[in-house]
Amino acid sequence: MKKVLLFVLLSSLCFGQYKGLDSLKLNETIEKITKDTDKNFVISEKGKDKGKFYIKYKNPEKEDDRLMVLYYSFMDGANEALEIKGVKKWNIESVSGNFLSVFPIWQKYSNTKTTKEELSNKKFEYYTTPEGKSSDFVGRGPFWMIRF
């Protein structure tokens, strides 16, 4: 029973850490994601496209090794009818890049039991916590994406 409760608690913490972030927590989380790859990624570009923000990273040690974090903002608690503006919050929507760069993030925060070999052969994995929070890992060839 203790193991089940610990799993439920850890799962909710892992998936919840990408939603409803203030700007400081967003920056900390994105920095942690890049460090969790165990690669020396540096920012190559920041921008906005179709209402979503992105940060692109490159690995100076390997030209074709790239990573991108896609995120967006929303006004938490906003209610136009009641003229409540709400508080600006951020959600990380996805992390994409080369399989070997993105896989450590998936394994650490989503399905800790999957292996590189299993997942690369599947091309897709969907994971749901007991609370109903879900994410998926999908890819073809060298390009893969985790959606939260």
Rank of each mutant, 00 (worst) to 15 (best):
F137K: 00
T112E: 04
S101I: 13
G141N: 11
I146W: 00
I55N: 05
P142W: 07
V8A: 15
V42Y: 15
T128D: 11
I43F: 14
L67C: 11
K133E: 12
P60W: 02
W90C: 03
K50E: 06
K122A: 11
M1H: 13
Y72T: 07
V4K: 09
I43A: 07
D22G: 12
E83L: 05
E125K: 00
S96Q: 05
Y127N: 15
W106L: 05
S11T: 14
C14A: 13
F7T: 15
K122C: 07
S120L: 13
P130H: 09
E118H: 11
N111E: 02
R140F: 06
F137I: 12
R140A: 13
I55Y: 04
S134N: 11
K50T: 08
G132P: 02
E45D: 10
Y71L: 12
S120D: 15
S23C: 14
M68D: 05
E125W: 02
F103T: 01
V42L: 14
T37G: 00
G16Q: 03
S11W: 01
S110R: 06
Y57L: 10
K2R: 11
Y126M: 06
L67M: 06
G20K: 07
K39I: 10
A81Y: 10
K122H: 09
W144K: 00
K89L: 04
E63H: 10
F7Y: 12
L26W: 02
T129V: 15
G132I: 02
S94C: 11
G51V: 14
K48C: 14
K35F: 01
E117H: 12
E83K: 08
S135D: 00
K62T: 13
L70T: 04
G47N: 03
L5I: 13
K133Y: 11
E45C: 05
Q17Y: 07
C14Y: 08
E125G: 01
I55E: 03
Y126K: 03
L26G: 00
A78N: 14
C14E: 03
I146Y: 02
K56D: 10
V4C: 07
G132T: 08
N59W: 03
C14R: 08
K58W: 02
L82P: 03
E83T: 03
N111I: 08
N27G: 13
K2N: 09
L26I: 12
T128Q: 11
D136E: 14
D136F: 07
R140W: 08
D64S: 10
R147D: 12
D65T: 06
K52N: 05
W144T: 03
K123D: 05
R147C: 11
M68W: 09
M1W: 10
W144Q: 01
M145P: 00
N91R: 09
I55D: 09
